[in-house]
Design a binder for these strands. Structure first.
Lengths: 200, 200, 200, 200
DNA sequence: AATGAATGAGACTTCATTCAT
DNA sequence: CATGAATGAAGTCTCATTCAT
């Protein structure tokens, strides 16, 4: 049989594999220790490769960190863009739809905890990430205000920030899936209806 | 002879003064650079004193940082305890009263920016600070729910966290006094009434 | 079958070609940066070949350098041997003949600037090269002294060294051909007649 | 007795002493191995101090090297300026006077061999040093040509370079004092009278 | 109360070189 | 003949911390 002896195109090359593994290991250690306290030696030891190998794939420790942050932001933005609420949604479903948005964010942040830690919780990357996220959400909210779904008593920009702040606090202690659903409901109610027991 | 050989209580001794100056300098540098990126040499250079002097007043770089964090938390808790809303408040004033709470927090965070940066924004101290703050606020809210001021549809703990998250996002870009007042109003409306344009 | 399986002598094999290219590339980088500051990766990048290829042709970075130095010295010695001045030269032509020698050296050093840099200017190779060159020249001069062409007031060895020193300084800033001719004339006059305006 | 307990002004402080010792040790190792092959650890080991101590006194390895090169050049220039030949020198003494100049240079280069190695023989510092030296000497020679001491058949600049080249070659193998005197005589004769046995 | 001087420990990064293909 | 991938060994430099004065 003359089966191919050369690597096939659909098989990732060894280098690509190593790069991916290094990224994962780096994410784990960065997430656990933070950028400064992370040693390159920690990262490579997890894989059993040498330190120079790390520098074959990343130009520096900082570049590796940045690569992870960027990856996180890219994914986060992609998610946000899918969460605009259609203007013709039945009134009875609004709160649930908002809850769904909260839940999608919480699920996203729970999906890759290491990357979340690096891109969303740790400085110095976290601040720009949240600023961006607040902006993207505010864009959605502004449209939803224009479509009459939300009141415009509070500026869309501020609502976006509040949204992010709520997500931030909810996600911090890594709730499980069930808890995330509950929290999303609570946030949606708070955001939609407020908490004041207005006298009728 | 009644010569004073001991420092009198009402006269700050040279040491106490140096200690205070070092704390201030340390706060400035820690706030600007973060814990890891701050060098003890940076701190002492600001004052023109030597490095051993630093170690006369702090057992370590970490201890100095911790001292600042603790100071911040003490002040923050003291503030929170003053912000419980009386049960007999007239309904018309509730939103304003909540806005006042938000504003007090924002003003507090603006008062000593370096300490705020260290105790509220920078890891690793920021997380416990916010957990504590959320708890204290939740305690207030639980009482306010019991007094019938707020609905208990959403758990007090969660509302506390949302409150903290909102504060966090509002304070991040250091708004001036006027902006803080506006933001506080917006947050209060959002928290009390929500943003949904409910059909009547 | 008379198929050629071995490379024919009149066809440069691929390997020989690569070797030559590598030598040239190595010379360029060594000349520019010096031995220590030259990285093997720099050399191979110029050719677009891989680092192991370098080690197919040179046993080490040092060996490659040494090969170049030796090459330079071989050529230099060959030149020197051609420059003995015949004893029966007409007196009127002596200075010009000496100038010719200077010029031949300067032209030689200008011919392959990279190799010159490596073999003549850079340590550690430059010192033995010059010692050798001074010796070869001194041999010529000793004969020229014996033939009565030159006075023997100054030892041939010392004159040889002075000759080398003059060449060294003249060649250092890579004069063009015209300048080299002028410099050679000047050196010849200096060496033959001195510069002192002796009172008559 | 109340003899002083504080360091007196006329006693060099410990730091200054360490700095001086480090300079000497650095000069020794740099001279022996060259810049690139010299390890900071080699330098400090000679003194029995730690590596950080080195960095208390020099901003980098390179800065230390540069400091030594500058020191050498300063001294060399100072020497050169003293060697201009007075125009009214008796004709009989000219060659001896030129020999004296050669000898002063050779003695200078022999005085601190480590510094000489670094500033005069090793690249990359050696080239600028010699260029400077040639220029300073050429300035002297130009004046000596104007005063009629030397012919101006050969340009002062070129004579300066030849002078430097001769010195360079003479100094290279570290002649002892007696040899230096002899060599200086030889160089002076060569430079003043040339070596050609001109037919009368 | 304060400091000049020193250092232990260790981080990041580089580079010549090799192995398996 | 050529190379993608990997590494051992080392080097420069940093920084919190201490000792003796």
């Amino acid at each position: 049989m003359d089966k191919q002896e050369k690597p096939r195109a659909d098989v990732v090359s060894k280098g690509t594999l190593t790069h991916a593994k290094l990224r994962k290991a780096a994410a784990a250690v960065f997430a656990k220790r933070g950028f400064h306290a992370t040693k390159v030696s920690d990262i490579v030891q997890q894989l059993g490769v040498s330190q120079p190998t790390f520098y074959n794939y990343f130009v520096s420790k900082e570049a590796a960190y940045e690569e992870l942050v960027q990856e996180f932001r890219r994914r986060l933005q992609a998610l946000t863009l899918t969460l605009l609420i259609a203007p013709d949604i039945p009134s009875a479903e609004v709160v649930d739809r908002v809850a769904l948005s909260f839940r999608k964010f919480l699920d996203f942040l729970a999906d890759d905890p290491d990357l979340t830690e690096i891109g969303f919780f740790q400085p110095p990357g976290c601040t720009p990430t949240k600023v961006g996220m607040a902006t993207w959400i505010a864009t959605n909210i502004a449209q939803e205000q224009q479509s009459g779904l939300f009141r415009d008593e509070v500026a869309a920009g501020q609502i976006g920030k509040c949204f992010v702040g709520m997500i931030d606090q909810m996600a911090r202690d890594r709730p499980d899936a069930a808890t995330r659903a509950t929290l999303a409901q609570g946030c949606a109610r708070l955001l939609c209806n407020g908490v004041w027991a207005k006298p009728t």
